[in-house]
Every structure is written in structure tokens, then in C-alpha cells.
Amino acid sequence: MRSNPAEFEWAAPATLEEAVKVLAGDPDAWLPIAGGTDLMVQFAAGTLERRRFLNIWNLGELRRIDGFPGELQVGAGSTYTDLRENDIITREFPLLGRTASWTGGIANQNRGTLGGNVANASPAADSLPALMVYGADLILTSTRGDRRVRYEDFHTGYKRMNLAPDELIRTICLPRRFSGYISYARKIGTRKAQAIAKVCIAAVGRLAKDSTQLMLEDVRIAVGSVAPVPLRLRNAEQLLNRRPLDEARVELACKAAAAEIQPISDLRSTAKYRAQIVNNLVREFLDTLAARERER
């Protein structure tokens, strides 16, 4: 334990409204803490710069999952376990449930929150590619009111994000339009469980008959751990959408993906390996699409 807890203040607002008020009082000083699965690691390592914890764990407003006709609203304080246990998520957003099950062991899934994962802004975070392919929006809240932003535009650089110092992430909104999509996700870690991703991917797409042949539709691919932020592979998608799925297309898409990512070598892996894995996973996804189609 390399921090001195005597140096850390603690504010425990009873409501979200109070929480944003405390935050507004001295926005650069407070460190909102929910499940602590990331912040407490830094606390133990003695690397936290801010010394004021603002407790938002278990705030009722943040820990609810509401299904509306057009979208699912997931409170930012929902835990991975909450996601795994939610029927709508299991049915309509399977990638989110699956990636939640990869995040740490059961104990950490009971504490780690989706909003925390977004705010922590790790490029290796398991669930963020899923949020990206599902076209999630975020509702951010402060004493100045709420604003709604596209998740895809939220992370602007390594650990940088479109979040004002006085704002909290309130809700993650998922458009309910992905039933019937084929989905694919995979995490390549250092071992089978409890590992930080070397590369992770989430993808969805459809195949539709266009007069004579099968065409790819609304293919959406996002990858983690290969750029300073979770990355949507827009160029690769563009080459695939409204095109037939054949080897030449796959080749083109993989080339485009390779140009979009910016992998680095670090403690966990090499840039070369990460690039090759992205290539292989994009292929595996497209192969999965083809295989599902063949099953029909």
C-alpha cells in the first residue's frame, strides 16, 4: 500500500444532484470513484495525483438499466455483473454481455462499472469496442445540465476525453436496432482469463440479398489496444458495406484496417503482433458472417 489514506479526503453525496454540486465546487480536485477497480489499484501503487475521492458507488440514479422502445439506457454505475444479468442486453446487445464477462474475475465484475470503464479511458478496455459498434451515446451531467454526445467522438486521445472537469457520465444509451445482426467479439490476452487485452475486437454486421447476390450491410468493427483510443475501423467498414463478401473484399478490408490502426510495442505485446492479430480477427469476423450465412 503506497498511498497514505490519511491524505485522501472523501465526499459521499447521497444523490447524483449533490454529487455534481460537490464536483462543481472544485472540479479539478475531485476524483469520482465508483467500483474502484481501477482507481484503487493506482491508490495502492501510490500513483494518484488527486487526493479527493467523490464517491458515486451505488448512487441509485446511476445504477439502473431502463429499456425504452427506441433505446436502452444503462446507468453509468451499472456493474459488469449487472450487464451480464440483464435480459435486454443478453438478447439485443450480446457483445456487451460477452465483453463484460471478460473483464477481470467475478469479484471485479461485481464492482467494475461501465461508466468507470468509459471514464478510465484505457485503450485496452474490453467493453469499449462494443459500445462503439452499437453506436452508443453518452449522457453527461453537471450542475449546468445534461448533454448528449456520441461515444465514438468521446475519447480524443490517450486518456483524454470530451468530459468537462465538472461533468459525470450519467447514462450510456444504446439504440435498439441490432436484433438480427450477426455479432462477433474476441479478446486476445496473455492467458485465458483475467488478462489485459493485447487486442480486442467487437463487430456486427448483416448479409442481405440484393437481387442476385449476398451483400454486406451495416458492418461495424471496433478494436481496442491498437491505438491511443478504442478505434472504429471506418475505412475497412466502408470497403465492405453494400459489397459482396469474397476473398478480394476481405483482403481490401484488412489492408484498410492495417492503415487505420496505430499499434505500439509495450510491456504486453509488440506492434507487429498486434497488427497481425487485427488482420486475423477482421478475417475471422468476416468468416463468421459467411459461416452464419451458410448455416441459413
Partner: peptide
Amino acid sequence: GEGECGACSVLVDGRLVVSCLMP
């Protein structure tokens, strides 16, 4: 001390939690 090993696991309201990551 970083939530990796589970040796500090306890149940909090019936849920498994690593107590090293809980203030």
C-alpha cells in the same frame, strides 16, 4: 493489492468482492 489474485475476497451484500479495491 491490485485485485488480481483474489486472496482478499469477501462477500459484500452477498456479492464476491476483492476487499483490497474497496474503500
